[in-house]
Amino acid sequence: MASGGGAGAVVFYPADRDLSAWCERHAAGSAPDRWPYGLDRLDAHLPRVTAKNFPPASPVTRVARRLAAVVPPMRRAGRPAGVTWDENAGSLLSTTNGLSARYSGVVWLTDSVARRGAAPFRTMRRAMRRMDGLWVLSDAQVAPLADFLGPGAPPVHYVRFGVDHDFFRPAPYPERPLVVSVGGDRDRDPETMLRAMATVRRARPDVDIVVQSKTTLAPPAGVTVIPYLTHVELRGLYARASVVVLATRPNLHVSGMTVGLEAMATGRPLVITRTPGMDDYFGGTSAAHLVDVGDADALGRETLALLEDPESAAAEGGLARAHVEAGFTTAHLAARIAGVIAGR
Rank of each mutant, 00 (worst) to 15 (best):
G8K: 05
V10N: 14
V11M: 02
P14T: 01
P14R: 10
A15R: 02
D16I: 05
D18Y: 00
S20E: 13
S20K: 12
W22D: 10
H26F: 08
S30V: 08
S30M: 07
S30T: 11
A31D: 12
D33W: 08
D33G: 12
R41P: 15
L42Q: 11
A44L: 05
N53M: 02
F54W: 01
A57R: 12
S58Y: 04
A69I: 09
V71R: 10
V71E: 14
P72C: 01
P73V: 00
R75A: 13
G78L: 02
G82E: 09
V83A: 03
D86F: 02
D86S: 13
A89D: 04
A89P: 02
A89V: 07
S94P: 14
R102K: 09
S104N: 15
G105K: 04
V106L: 10
V106H: 08
V107I: 12
D111Q: 12
S112L: 13
G117D: 13
A119Y: 03
A119R: 03
R122L: 11
M124R: 10
M124L: 13
A127K: 10
L134P: 12
L134D: 04
V136I: 07
Q141H: 06
A143N: 14
P144A: 07
L145Q: 06
A146K: 09
F148Q: 09
L149F: 02
P151I: 03
P151V: 03
G152T: 12
V159W: 00
R160S: 14
F161G: 04
F161D: 09
H165F: 03
D166H: 13
D166L: 08
P172E: 03
R176S: 06
V179T: 07
V180E: 01
R186W: 03
R186S: 14
R186P: 06
D187M: 05
D189P: 13
D189C: 08
P190G: 13
T192M: 01
R195I: 04
A196N: 12
M197F: 08
A198N: 08
T199C: 13
T199L: 07
V200P: 11
V200S: 07
V207Q: 09
V207C: 12
L217C: 14
P219Q: 05
I226P: 15
Y228K: 12
A239M: 08
R240D: 12
S242L: 01
R249K: 09
R249P: 06
R249L: 00
P250D: 11
G256E: 03
V259C: 11
V259T: 09
G267H: 00
P269F: 12
V271F: 03
V271T: 14
T273W: 00
R274Y: 00
T275Y: 00
G277A: 13
M278Y: 01
D279M: 06
D280V: 14
D280P: 04
Y281F: 07
S286Q: 13
A287F: 04
A287H: 09
G294E: 02
G294H: 00
D295K: 03
T303C: 11
L304Q: 14
L304W: 05
L306N: 10
L307W: 05
L307H: 07
P310Q: 10
S312P: 14
S312I: 09
E316M: 08
A326P: 11
A326Y: 01
F328T: 11
T329G: 14
T330K: 04
L333Y: 05
R336H: 06
A342K: 07
A342T: 00
